[in-house]
Design a protein around this nucleic acid. Structure first.
Lengths: 212, 212
DNA sequence: TAGATTGTTAATCGATTAACAATC
DNA sequence: TAGATTGTTAATCGATTAACAATC
């Protein structure tokens, strides 16, 4: 394979699923796995797993498969999960609070270092072990922790300004829960979580199920 | 084009974004839009929009573009959004409560008709205007409302059993927030919301940014 | 050794983009 | 009419799958 080619984004998006599945395997005390077996757990073909991994190197043994722990470590290294990643959360409504309280980020190398809301009634309150801060402190907190990751959980109408401020303050990758497409510079990564859109794509299939 | 071909899933997933953008346009008082203009708002090419729509019919006028309201109505009809969709939410932790309290579902044709948790301490409490019910009532509520949509927001270890029960009770499409890949029959639709995986794909790019 | 499974190449499949005749 | 923009076809691009030699 051509190690010069950058791996496609689809592949990068699948790597975290491999990581998770390998962690589960390890918890189950399974130390060796074939692309076939791994694939069955993630609903992905064996060929796709091997092809995906081939962008980064050779991690298995013919006739044997993959050493779970070794492969896990390798993919974690590829994803940069050997360091902890500081991130900030903006918008502490019900959703933002659920995000702030979710242990899954912390256990997976993602460390929330700042919570921000512009509502004066919320500022100062604690969520978990962090206080909600005013937007005026965004810049300081982001530079202090060198945070490059942010989660936006503010109302739709407010998301674009928040994104602008975050980027200005040094944020380079955003996970946006607000139902708006953000306009950002090319060197900023933006991903969306959009449950209503997902549900609407499902209603399509339910509405058309009996025509098929 | 060949109206006999089923539209690809990628296209179905984009339709809800068109719906949303068209709604925003309408709110802004804009009544006519070209594929070019619409595309700029959603970060999609004009050609892709026209191609996507062509799977379902002809909705625009040459030289003019699309009537916003008309196109909106058409896509809503295609997605089945002319009816309201009953759905249940299982798991009323912080996340489940945020979901239950989010107005976005209700305003977009998705009506939560039941909240379920197995924790006896939670059962009976109200979240918004609905009480949290025990799993024993799942079957009844689902059949009463003929719900075919469900959201799973339980801990990872519990998600597969919950899915099994839901499907047994008649659910046909699931949005799963738990970090596990569900094993389900072919006639059940499953989508995932997985913020940790998304963040991990972002750390990849941040970790490799300066090699590029 | 025989059996299993990798890594990789080539073939296939599918989605996006470009281009343009049709037409408002 | 001239200019703009659609709907659609064909070309391009990219991702998935199949197949198999290499090898544990």
């Amino acid at each position: 394979m051509d190690r010069l080619d950058a791996p496609p984004d689809v592949v990068i998006r699948r790597l975290p699923l491999y990581v998770r599945s390998l962690r589960y395997l390890l918890e189950e005390g399974i130390h060796s796995v074939s692309s076939q077996e791994l694939g069955e757990r993630i609903n992905v073909t064996a060929a796709q797993i091997r092809k995906d991994l081939s962008y980064f190197g050779e991690f298995g043994k013919q006739g044997i498969g993959y050493d779970v722990e070794k492969l896990l470590n390798q993919i974690e290294r590829i994803l940069g999960l050997t360091n902890r990643w500081p991130m900030v959360v903006v918008g502490l409504g019900y959703l933002g609070q659920a995000i702030a309280r979710y242990e899954g980020f912390h256990t997976q190398g993602l460390q929330i270092v700042g919570l921000f809301d512009r509502d004066p009634d919320k500022v100062g309150r604690m969520v978990g072990n962090l206080p909600i801060l005013d937007y005026t402190l965004l810049q300081t907190v982001i530079s202090t922790h060198q945070a490059r990751l942010a989660i936006i959980a503010v109302p739709a109408a407010h998301a674009q300004v928040v994104a602008d401020v975050l980027i200005e303050a040094g944020i380079r990758a955003i996970l946006n829960y607000a139902p708006v497409i953000l306009q950002t510079p090319d060197d900023v990564w933006v991903r969306y979580i959009d449950p209503v859109a997902v549900m609407h794509s499902l209603t399509y299939y339910l509405a058309h199920e009996h025509q098929a």
